[in-house]
């Protein structure tokens, strides 16, 4: 899988049943995303960005077509194998932070490693490294309720990154952040992208995010309307 395709979708169609008929959220998506990309999916609300991310992340299945992620055809996965693909290779960042409120920052970030069955020593090291990336080592023992929105989102990023996944799928990661925090997080992601060669795929409306990406795919009505390389305005 050299420096080649990390994600390949071909003829991807997603239809949702609506009443008697159905609504087509994605039509014929053919995309290749390569390892190490820092790419934004943009487009108006309802254009299918989240749907596409969910399919790539094996949280949802396409109606037809295929999505090959890290060499695995996600349309052929069972719940169990899909879960394993996510555990081992994919980090999710959600529009809302979705931290588990009963657990500390440390424990929230630790969860993906527990699922990987990593031993305690390595786990602790990895969690602390990850919290260092996002500048939150001093908040390790805090509960999510004690964090600001920006801090929470940074924890979510740490959680997505802690296992050093090949792919991070981020759905509107800055929607709830102020300008400064948005830039901090995006800068950190760029850094991780460079240092670890992590592939990032964003779904976003946010111009701040768009300013950072190197490739911009525009979806309109479930179709790829534009797919261009851009020069990041911010770094």
């Amino acid at each position: 899988m050299k420096n080649g395709a990390l994600i390949t979708t071909s003829g991807l169609v997603k239809q949702y049943p609506v009443g008697r008929g159905h609504f087509t959220a994605l039509r014929d998506i053919d995309l290749i995303i390569e390892r190490g990309e820092f790419t934004g999916l943009v487009g108006p609300s309802g254009s299918g960005k989240t749907t596409l991310l969910n399919i790539i992340g094996a949280l949802d299945f396409p109606t037809s077509g295929s999505a090959v992620v890290l060499g695995t055809d996600t349309t052929k996965l069972t719940h169990k194998t899909a879960a394993r693909l996510r555990t081992e290779h994919i980090g999710f960042i959600f529009q809302t932070y979705n931290l588990l409120p009963v657990y500390t920052v440390f424990e929230n970030v630790e969860l993906p490693l527990l699922l990987l069955g990593m031993d305690q020593g390595r786990r602790k090291q990895a969690v602390m490294d990850s919290l260092e990336w996002v500048g939150l080592t001093d908040k390790a023992k805090s509960r999510p309720a004690q964090l600001s929105g920006g801090e929470s989102q940074r924890v979510a990023v740490a959680r997505a990154m802690v296992k050093r996944p090949g792919l991070v799928l981020a759905d509107e990661p800055t929607a709830n952040l102020d300008v400064e925090n948005s830039h901090n997080i995006l800068k950190m992601m760029v850094k991780l992208n460079k240092e670890l060669e992590t592939t990032f795929l964003f779904a976003t409306h946010d111009q701040k995010v768009i300013d950072y990406v190197r490739r911009k795919i525009t979806l309109i009505d479930g179709k790829v309307a534009e797919d261009i390389q851009t020069t990041p305005k911010s770094q």
């Binding site: 949280l59 169990k80 879960a83 996510r86 999710f92 959600f94 931290l99 588990l100 969860l111």
Partner: peptide, 16 residues
């Protein structure tokens, strides 16, 4: 549901 959704997304299996 929320917590469960997150756990699933992070990679926990439904059976687990």
């Amino acid at each position: 549901f929320g917590e469960i959704g997150v756990r699933l997304a992070i990679g926990e299996s439904k059976a687990h």
